[in-house]
Each structure stands twice: as structure tokens, then as C-alpha cells.
Design a protein around this nucleic acid. Structure first.
Lengths: 200, 200
DNA sequence: TTCATTAATTAACTTTTGTTAATTCAGACT
DNA sequence: AGTCTGAATTAACAAAAGTTAATTAATGAA
């Protein structure tokens, strides 16, 4: 289960009674991943909804040339799904891998949603995953049309300063839509312009 | 109202009875925009959900230097909202403008959602806007991390071939995260490599 | 501690994009 | 037809990013 302060946050946020929140959690089971473990493999069709209690998950595409492109990074207190399966109803083109020791609460997406649909008390909770994910993706799209690669890197540092210590640069680079070589140059430019670039 | 074939599509898609679908439409009213009309202005706090019966809407940010960056294009049969207001609960940073004669069905977002929440028959319809918007934004994010500007342009042409005739290049360019000059060069490169670039 | 492996940086070079400005093109209006 | 306006193209140059490969740094296992 969750810690006291997070439970209270969700009670408030979803506007639920404690028993109601408990009934939601009863649908989920805990899953522990160690660094490097694959949670969802390319080709998988398991429609899971997962909440990250702690840790870091990387969603990436393995290209024909053997290179990996990071599409998403999800960390503690965020939800995620293999969105190919849940949104597009197809086998996952992506692999979801733990970048560090990670603890998930996972539930079957459809079972969870059906449960939420049975009682309108849950309507707020039901929207939460979709809305928060959509909000984040909109911000991500904005960052691509409004910012250049250097600015996107700075924004990521602002959003999640310790990501640099938790995830290799080569994965961060492709997440930003650039190559690792280019990210290295950006870091150098920032350093030489007296910006405090986080050490690895 | 909608044409017969679209009504049938939504009855099927949302799994509703005709009367139920009608009750949804009764919440919306039609709004006609002519080319250049502003639908939502920067600073607005009206939380509307709109369905585009026909036409094309551009969502853009006006930057300090006077330049406009297109963040979204939405066309016929798509939903949209001033997402700043609905997702982030803040005044819109963006302006939504009709690029051509456009007919909308609009409803107050909160009134509409509250109505849908009252009856679980509507749960599928309720998710539809969020899921389809999220799916599209995920594809957009993918296009930025997996494709270069030329490939993003080609993908847009594939998704919506007539967009080139309906929207000036300078707006398409910023939507792709590049400058109008760069898009012009991409079009030239494609032409000279015997690709059939659509005429304006 | 040493060795092997992988990540990150640097270098050299090519390609693309950004920027600014000039030129050409197309549509709207008188 | 002629003029005006803004879009699109082109040009010229600077800046940044991609690519490939070499070098250095960091990490982990024996």
C-alpha cells in the first residue's frame, strides 16, 4: 500500500471515502522490478495500468538498426500503460524497462476501468489517469514546437533534476529527439556558459 | 445535427441508443465560423468542448517577438478544447482560429462531463474524447522522437493530404517544429528527388 | 586491483537548420 | 490591367545537429 501522506492526497484528490479508495487498491497488486528488468516486452498484449510507487521506467522502441529510441520516461507517483495495447488495441511496439529498483502497483486496465464505471463516485479517479497523461503529452508536444533541444534539456532538468543521475544520457538524448553526441555538446556549451550542469 | 452515416457511426461506436445520442447532442449548439474568425482568444477561460462538423481550426501561441507557433491543427470529425482551461485549469495561452469556413458543435465541458457522469451508459462516450486526443498526442510525440523534419512532413501529408491546400505552409512548418524557410527547402528537396509534392 | 565493457566526450567532417534579407509568386481589391 | 499585400522561395551565411570514429571516463565483474 501507499504511505499515509499519499493516501490522504488521493482521498482528497479523487474525492473518495477511505473504503472506496481501498476497494480500488484491492484491484492492484504490487510488483517489484530490479534494475534492468523488462516489465512489458515488445509484442506484448497485456493491458495493464501501472502506478509507480518508486523507481523509473523507460519506454523505448528498438529500431531495425539495433538502436533504441526512448519515447517516455515515467517515474514515482506517475501512472503508465503499454499505450499501444490500451489506446490502439494492438501489440506493443515498445519495451518498458526498469532503469532502477522499481515498485509498481499494477491492475488489469479493463478490469480496473469496468470497476470504476460501475460507480459514479469513481468518475474523478477514472478521469485522472487519462487527463494527467494527456496533460503531460500536451506539454511534451509544446516543448517540441516551442523549444530547441537545449531548451528542452533545461526544461527536463527543471522538471526532474535528478533524472541525470538516474538515467544514462544516451536515453535522455533520444527522449529529447536528439543524438547522444548532440546532448554531450549541449552539456558542454552550458558548462562553458557558466550554467551549473548536473554531474553524473 | 450530423449526417445519417455519422450518426450511425457514433451510435455504434459509443454503444448508445438513438435517444441517448440525441440527449447528448441536445447539450451542444452549433456555431459557424468564417475564415479567420477567432474561436477562443488567448486569455480566455471558457471551458468548451467542441466537435468539428467541417472546417479547420488552428491552435497557436503568439510569442513576444510577434511570431506565431502552431501547436495543433484540428479538422472535421475531431474534438478539441482549449486544453489550458480544461486540463490545467488556467487561462488559455493559445488562440484558436478558423483557417476556413468551419462548423462546430460546442458544449460547456463541465456541463457535458457532469451529464455523462450521471449515467454509466455514457462511459464509453465520455472516454472517447480523452482517449482519442491522448492517442493523437502520443503519435505526435512519437513523430518528434522517431522522425526527422522531412519524415514528419511526409507523415502529415499521408495523414491529411489536403492540409497543404487548406493551410499556409508557414503554419504547417511551426506545427512540425521547424521554420517556414526550412519547410520550403524540404519541399524542394522532395521535388528534386522525384517525390510528388502537392501543389498549393 | 585489474580487466573488460559500456558510456560519455571529443574530433573531424557532412548535412541540415536557423536567421536575415532579397526576390518571386499568387491572390485580393480597386 | 495594375497595384498592394502577404506567402513562398531563394540566397548567403552562421549555428547547430547528424554521422562515424577515436579517445577518455566510468562501471562492474573476476
Amino acid at each position: 500500500m501507499l504511505e499515509e501522506n499519499k493516501v490522504n492526497h488521493y482521498l482528497d484528490f479523487f474525492d473518495l471515502a477511505p473504503e472506496e479508495l481501498m476497494s480500488l487498491f484491492s484491484l492492484a497488486k504490487e510488483k517489484v522490478l530490479k534494475e534492468g528488468d523488462v516489465y512489458v516486452k515488445e509484442g506484448s498484449t497485456t493491458g495493464k495500468l501501472a502506478y509507480i510507487k518508486s523507481g523509473l521506467i523507460r519506454c523505448f522502441l528498438l529500431k531495425e538498426n539495433g538502436e533504441e529510441t526512448t519515447v517516455l520516461l515515467r517515474w514515482e507517483d506517475q501512472f503508465f500503460t503499454a499505450y499501444d495495447t490500451v489506446l490502439f488495441n494492438q501489440a506493443s511496439r515498445f519495451t518498458y524497462q526498469a532503469m532502477e529498483h522499481t515498485v509498481l502497483l499494477e491492475a488489469d486496465y479493463q478490469v480496473f476501468m469496468d470497476f470504476l464505471n460501475k460507480n459514479s463516485k469513481f468518475s474523478k479517479a477514472k478521469d485522472y489517469f487519462l487527463i494527467s497523461m494527456l496533460a503531460e503529452m500536451m506539454e511534451r508536444v509544446e516543448s517540441f514546437v516551442l523549444l530547441n533541444p537545449e531548451e528542452r534539456y533545461l526544461r527536463l532538468l527543471k522538471d526532474k533534476p535528478n533524472i541525470v543521475q538516474r538515467c544514462p544520457d544516451k536515453y535522455i538524448a533520444t527522449l529529447l529527439g536528439i543524438t547522444p553526441v548532440s546532448l554531450s555538446r549541449i552539456r558542454k556549451r552550458l558548462t562553458s556558459s557558466s550554467f551549473a550542469v548536473p554531474k553524473k
